[in-house]
């Protein structure tokens, strides 16, 4: 680990200014991913600006009925918040399915969104990786790819986004508040993360010096019946092979509205627009769910070791929708 300077920020504008003027500066949140990268040599910042004591630790109801989650709210606190458990259970479940208690107690809302892929080649500085060093080539192409993408990948990168929380936020249509060197802006979470294309080193649309300050959950009554279902190689403390965040609004046996996102399948949380479209107005039956899942996965392109993810994603989506429809019927 190379030495770096450390500053603790008391104000967001000061933090943005401190990072913005130094190309080799970075924000430090809970440290659960960045500190790993310092030790592995994946990240070599000259300056870390600690943003964990900025005044963004609140969870507040908004006048329009939504909920604002501050960027420094810890994952464990967000998962335990009563209003989240009642109105957005998918988010609480997603958070609790991620990492371990010790890590959730450190990890922040903003940092969780910006964590980087766990592709083993990205984290191993001795192997080429386009995400770590543009132009080096992709070691995963033709390499070990059990955890890699089946949707939206490019020849340059087949990595997946590791966050569970972000998958739930994607299904919920959350909005990310950002302040940066050029002022403040709001970004739909569905547009925060990128597909790799020919710039896999860019995980998100954020520019250097942009700081996430809060995430807004819209008022969404149907989210009171929502679920997160995660499939992994062991019962706890593992990244998703495949996950599904979903909310379903059924009336008289017909789907009125569905919100679905998939995790573990792409470079970003994958909003299942095709499946949602297929479900609107369809009977809430297993056959509809299966057809919607198959439509969503029609373009899937598995690589060497992850063909299993296509039926796994389909079956997990069907099972999640079936559970939600069963909940509705009671």
């Amino acid at each position: 680990m190379i030495p770096f300077d450390y500053q603790r920020a008391d104000r967001a504008d000061g933090a943005v200014a401190a990072v913005g003027v130094r190309p080799a500066a970075a924000f430090l949140g809970g440290g659960t991913n960045l500190v790993d990268h310092l030790k592995l040599g994946v990240a070599e910042p000259e300056l870390l600006v600690d943003v964990t004591r900025l005044p963004f630790d609140g969870i507040d109801t908004l006048p329009d009925g939504g909920v604002r989650v501050g960027a420094t709210v810890r994952n464990s606190d967000l998962a335990a918040e009563a209003i989240v458990r009642q109105r957005y259970p998918v988010l609480s479940q997603a958070l609790l399915s991620g990492a371990s208690g010790q890590l959730r107690n450190l990890a922040t809302t903003g940092g969780n969104l910006l964590q980087r892929t766990r592709c083993p080649y990205f984290q191993d500085v001795t192997t080429p990786c386009n995400k770590r060093e543009p132009g080096q080539g992709c070691s995963a192409r033709g390499g070990y790819t059990r955890y890699h993408a089946i949707l939206g990948a490019s020849e340059h990168c087949v990595a997946t986004h590791p966050s569970d929380m972000a998958v739930a936020l994607t299904a919920l249509d959350a909005t990310v508040h950002v302040t940066g060197p050029n002022g403040q802006r709001d970004i739909p979470v569905t547009e925060l993360h990128r597909l790799p294309g020919d710039e896999p080193h860019r995980d998100t649309v954020l520019e250097h010096g942009d700081l996430i300050t809060a995430v807004d959950l819209p008022e969404l009554p149907m989210a009171a019946r929502s679920r997160y279902r995660k499939v992994r190689d062991r019962a706890s403390y593992a990244f998703a092979l495949v996950s599904v965040a979903a909310a379903l609004d059924v009336e008289d046996g017909t789907v009125r509205e569905a919100r679905i996102a998939l995790g573990g399948v792409a470079h970003k949380p994958w909003r299942a627009n095709t499946a949602e479209q297929a479900l609107r107005g369809a009977p809430a039956t297993e056959q509809s769910f299966r057809e919607a899942a198959e439509a969503e996965l029609a373009e899937a392109q598995p690589v060497r070791d992850n063909a299993f993810k296509v039926p796994m994603a389909r079956n997990t989506l069907v099972a999640t929708l079936r559970d939600l429809a069963g909940e509705e019927a009671r």
Binding site: L28, V35, N105
Partner: peptide
């Protein structure tokens, strides 16, 4: 509880 190795 937290991992002391990750806290600066």
């Amino acid at each position: 509880p937290a991992c002391a190795c990750l806290v600066a």
